[in-house]
Amino acid sequence: MGPAEASGNLVSLDGISVWLSGHEVLRDVSFSVRPGEFTGLIGSNGAGKTTILRVILGLQEPTAGRVLVKGKAGARHNRSVGYVPQKVLIDPDLPLRARDVVGLGLDGHRFGLSTSSGVRRRRIEEMLGAVDAAGFADSRMGNLSGGEQQRVLIAHALIGQPELLLLDEPLANLDIASGHEIVELMRRVATEHHVAVLLSAHDMNPLLPAMERVVYVAAGRAASGTVDEVVRSEVLSELYGHPVTVLRVEGRILVVAGSHDQTEILASAPHWLERT
């Protein structure tokens, strides 16, 4: 039994700080992800979400602190972590089908001649099916819609059989329906393949049905726990360094600046809150 199993954590960040060109992007960030868990990494644009993901991937060296992946330091190029970056621009002129992208996820890092065996083809086929992408497996990647591309990229990351999948703002460029489909897909995949998911988003509401834990990032600092533990006025006010209020309206969560009484806001602005 290795140290990872001993602590029970797949990934743990301990006091991570990152300085980028004279700015402190992350300050003393600590949290951990357990196997098979669905975690939301929530924060507004520029809060430091992508930097956290890059630290876990080993693409960004932390200025201070320690990151352990499966109990080991130096996470760089750990095959047990899959990654889907935020901005993936695929040129429509590129002759590359969805199945080729998934194939690159399987053995794209290997030099040498490809063995185009039946096993390889079957695994690609299976993975395309698992993300509901079988219907456009032979379409050119650059001609697919944003939601379809997102599915193919998830399959690309999943086929390497990671234990943790990092997704950077997968919902950012999608309409609401496709966003829900992706979240639902991720929840299903996480259970079926027993993969932990760390998914970043600026709005936590689409994730609420799937999210088991949340890491809330604001101004380079982070708080983690269950949604009920973290998304509270006191905790977030502390994190932002100024008063904020958490409102729960019809199953949705809103974070607004300033200290308010929930009933007072609801009374003063019912017309817009009801509609959001």
């Binding site: 991937l57 889907v84 590359l96 890092h109 001649l113 490809s114």
Partner: peptide, 23 residues
């Protein structure tokens, strides 16, 4: 080119994902 076909393709089309995989 034949020997580096796959990693070359990976970094050409998905550079960030390639970096994360160690290419």
């Amino acid at each position: 080119v034949a020997l580096m076909y796959r990693p070359l393709m990976l970094t050409s089309v998905l550079p960030d994902m390639g970096e994360a995989r160690g290419v």
